[in-house]
Nucleic acid binder design. Structure first.
Lengths: 236, 236
DNA sequence: GAATTTAGAACTGTATACAGTTACGAATAC
DNA sequence: GTATTCGTAACTGTATACAGTTCTAAATTC
């Protein structure tokens, strides 16, 4: 059993704050203040921040300190393109390596999660369920590095999705979950048929479909984050 | 101008030590001893080590400390497969986005580096020249994330290559550089022709060719690292 | 002689203090 | 009124000390 240390707790919390914009994009991070908030000293906090830099959540300048990464549409596009790179190769490898037995278990898993999609579940749960599907395939590829990278990308993209979905809840384009589910089924069918070309093509199209949703979500995020900021500046 | 801090220096040095096996794979890292060697205290050293963990060079266990990553053939294979994933997508995007002018400059660059390949240059230089070619394409893809990941992968694969080439120097299979150069030319031609399928296929084959060289290199590395260790143990 | 327990050494985890750097604003010169 | 300089405050960079944990090996028991 892996005993979780203080640093792990801090990383989790700081990552959370970066994701939810509790730390504003581009803003400098005040180490003393944040360490006090988190109930630890600066030493473990800096260790956590260093790790988040390497994970791509923060940036760092010598003598200046740590900064939240600016949130721009270009970056989101880059992340989605990287997801395509990773996942297309993952599904190709899974096609070569997954046993029929593993694919049968995978199908059972997919059938079991289906009810969650159809009944109007929490959107955040839908996002996580979707992530799980994709991670499952990465696991079937038997490549630890691809899996690790996909987990990292998921973490960095998740907030955009959740923001996008948050607004979608009020004005929902409601068939999206079913579409997603259909794509997932088609990918699985291609895997079972050992049709690598179909599997990769479907995967690529499936991810790229979320593209515009994502850039749209970034725009919404900007308005949510910066407008209140500007308003408060008006007051001062 | 970015002033380089002490931590940057330490990271560079520690990464170097991990790459060259000055720190043995799987071995625990003694922070006090290493910090003394590097002429710094444990605080900046631990910051550096944490970053190297996130970059994939080291592992970490709470309460136990930092460890060099074990060097096994499976991991090398994973890294090469990840390279394929990244680079195939990069060359595809470059095919869409690079202007004719950029490709002309690229061709000039390739022609200019050619002499270095034909004249028997240092193998380590050849490795770096090859890396540069691939990074160039990643840059043409205009995707910062793919570029970042490729740089990371290069760093982690480099030591295997250099070991493989070191032994190749004594018993050289001499046409390898020319083959590599040919593949590079074919990739460029495909880019100019905007033939994404040819570009990606050539890129994939080019990287996969290095595959067995790499696993062979790992075997050699094992013999070089562990045999002397065992011998010295005999003496004690 | 083998297994188990226990004491101590070594090492990691964290807090704190201080040195060095950067940023900000007031004061002065033009 | 604007620009420049200087001083101070805030923050980052690093060392060190100490607390808590893990590992090692010796001693004891069976």
């Amino acid at each position: 059993m892996q005993k979780t240390s203080n640093v792990d707790r801090i990383i989790e919390k700081a990552r959370e704050m970066a994701i939810t914009f509790e730390l504003k994009p581009g803003a400098r991070i005040n180490e003393s203040a944040l360490s006090k908030d988190l109930g630890a000293s600066r030493t473990p906090l800096r260790e956590a921040l260093n790790r988040l830099v390497a994970e791509g959540y923060l940036t760092f300048q010598t003598g200046k300190g740590f900064f939240c990464r600016a949130l721009d549409p270009k970056r989101i596009m880059d992340l989605y393109e990287t997801r395509v790179a990773i996942e297309v190769e993952a599904v190709r490898l899974a096609c070569l390596r997954a046993t029929d037995g593993e694919l049968a278990v995978f199908r059972a898993y997919l059938n079991q999660t289906e009810p969650a999609y159809s009944q109007g579940a929490e959107v955040s749960e839908l996002v996580l369920a979707d992530e799980d599907f994709h991670l499952y395939i990465a696991r079937l590829s038997q490549n630890d590095e691809l899996l690790r990278l996909l987990e990292n990308l998921n973490g960095r993209i998740r907030y955009v999705r959740s923001i996008g979905l948050k607004t979608m809840q009020s004005a929902p384009p409601p068939q999206a979950p079913e579409l997603s589910l259909t794509a997932h089924r088609r990918i699985l069918d291609a895997l079972v048929a050992r049709d690598a070309d179909a599997a990769t093509a479907t995967m690529r199209a499936h991810i790229e479909r979320r593209w515009e949703e994502a850039t749209e979500a970034v725009r919404i995020a900007y308005s949510q984050i910066y407008v209140p900021e500007d308003l408060s500046r008006e007051v001062l």
